[in-house]
Amino acid sequence: MQQKLNTFSGIVFAVYVWTCALAFCAIAGLLLYSVVSAGVTQVNWAFLTQEPIDSGRDGGIAPIILSTVLIIGVCLLATVPLGVGTAIFLADRISGKSKLAIGIRTALDVLGGVPSIIFGLFGNAFFCIALGMGYSILSGGLTLACMVLPIFVRVAESAIRNVAVDHYRAAMALALSKWTTTFRVILPRAIPGLLAALTLGIARALAETAALIFTSGYVTRFPESLNDSGRSLSVHIYDLALNVTGGNDRAFATASVLVILLLLINVVTHFVTRKLLRQS
């Protein structure tokens, strides 16, 4: 009887899990298909290498791709050290349970719930005006860093927290110093999880629009330095889709490029993760 019940609940659970997966794939497939089918026909070498002409309805998106890469770069440069440090602190078996840690965790969760437009206005007031960076790739990247941090820390924390149980005890038994435990024992084993956090962070950063309109700006020229304003792919899509008359097709073309870019980043991260896993 018990056995039958087990088999039955096993089947129900399997059906549920498969349904979830199929539902997700159906939605994702539908959405990506409608974006890519509307846009991919216009993506060609010229589109990738030219500057936008006629408000983006003609020409290409080369400077926009460059700006996007730079913005993401600045964002990661700020997020990774800050985020990994915070995650180690929060995941620590002693400091992570303190009142301070709960406070920090809550603060980060609240940060995650701040509307992107508030990030944009804040970034504009703080980075652009107060710190004098102006509309620039730098202020855009740093604003994005504030935005990505909560996601990055949460995922990184759970990666570090779960990896370390046995290793942490072993390190304690060996009387290893905190420094050694952190850098030689915990971090190397958390790398796959950290990469997952990074991928999610990059994805979030690539998807962001409202925070960037007010910080990295709207300029479609090739950026000459990090102090120049540069338009990101998502801002370009937003502008073409909502402000430029007849920009819809190009908006979908740009979205297709974004999807392809995301695919590339993911596949690369995946293989890096696998290589690292094999090594360790």
């Binding site: 997700f24 497939g29 959405l31 994805a203 979030r204 995301l262």
Partner: peptide, 24 residues
């Protein structure tokens, strides 16, 4: 494949979700 799909979906800008929502 599903993992890649998930990670791509995480990076689709909200304005694209919005456009799709509005038209479908």
């Amino acid at each position: 494949a599903v993992r890649r799909l998930v990670e791509i979906m995480a990076g689709v800008p909200s304005v694209v979700y919005g456009l799709w929502g509005l038209s479908v």
